[in-house]
């Protein structure tokens, strides 16, 4: 964000990839793609390709990290060293990924019924294999399904979406160039059943009215994204024989 681009990001009301201001990129999600994890999901969202998996509830180690009242939730979000078109990245978590992991974990703590599993841990892994903007949002949207597929009881299946400001306009679902050269970006996660906001981060400059407009676009995107999530989760069970 805040970089300088001589190229316009919006021409005749259309964005660099031809999208309208409030149009989402293509999203495809597959649930149940890993063998060892209790639940897993892979999401392709625009140029993002993100693998998510859930282990647990399982015994919490180290023991001193366990809580006798509820399960501990851990989340690791990280970008693979080959996930960016630019230079080779680092394999280890950096300050950015530590912060993102923290707010993602807190969002998941909101929906998981942690009180059902004292002294245990639910671990959520989000590996960005290819990144193209709004990776934390795509990661949360997929990891929610990995949690559901792992059979973790939840109050809701949240999704996340970004909005921002480019060339003076508020737009939905930022891709990488729009994030890099735009004036602001906001990531938010929503519980669709109650419309509560469980993740909210903003970088850049926006007026009150611009934030309100972005919020409206973000809430409107729920229909499309939650349907993709539901369909992906249902397809996991479609070919399953039902045993007595």
């Amino acid at each position: 964000m805040g970089g300088n681009s001589s190229e316009p990001l919006i021409i005749d009301g259309k964005r660099i990839d031809g999208r309208l201001l409030d149009q989402l990129r293509e999203i495809t999600i597959k649930v149940g793609i890993l063998n060892n994890a209790n639940g897993s999901a892979q999401i392709h969202w625009g140029g993002n390709n993100i693998l998510t998996a859930v282990y647990g509830p399982r015994e919490c180690f180290p023991k001193r990290a366990a809580n006798p009242y509820h399960a501990v939730v851990r989340c690791r979000y990280i970008m693979a060293p080959f996930s960016s078109l630019e230079e080779h990245g680092r394999t280890r978590p950096n300050r950015r990924s530590i912060e993102i992991s923290k707010v993602l974990k807190e969002a998941f703590e909101n929906v998981i019924l942690t009180e059902k599993y004292p002294n245990s841990v639910v671990e959520i892994f989000i590996e960005v294999l290819e990144g193209n903007g709004s990776t934390r949002c795509a990661g949360l949207t997929a990891a929610s399904l990995a949690l559901a597929a792992a059979g973790i009881p939840m109050k809701d299946i949240p999704f996340a979406i970004s909005f921002g400001k480019i060339d003076g306009e508020i737009v939905l679902d930022l891709k990488k160039e729009e994030d890099n050269y735009g004036d602001a970006d906001v990531a938010m996660a929503i519980k669709p059943l109650t419309n509560e906001i469980i993740l909210l981060q903003m970088d850049g400059k926006l007026t009150r009215e611009e934030i309100l407009k972005g919020f409206e676009m973000a809430f409107d995107s729920a229909k499309i994204i939650t349907k993709k999530q539901r369909d992906a989760l249902m397809s996991l069970y479609e070919n399953e024989e039902i045993e007595d």
Binding site: E106, E109, N110, K191, N195, E196, I197, L200, M202, I211
Partner: peptide
């Protein structure tokens, strides 16, 4: 004139109206 940073944290939630 501008909001220049937002950061929600913790396991609870906020509504849109609360944020505004």
């Amino acid at each position: 004139q501008h909001v220049v940073a937002l950061q929600k944290s913790g396991s609870g939630s906020f509504t849109k109206d609360e944020v505004m």
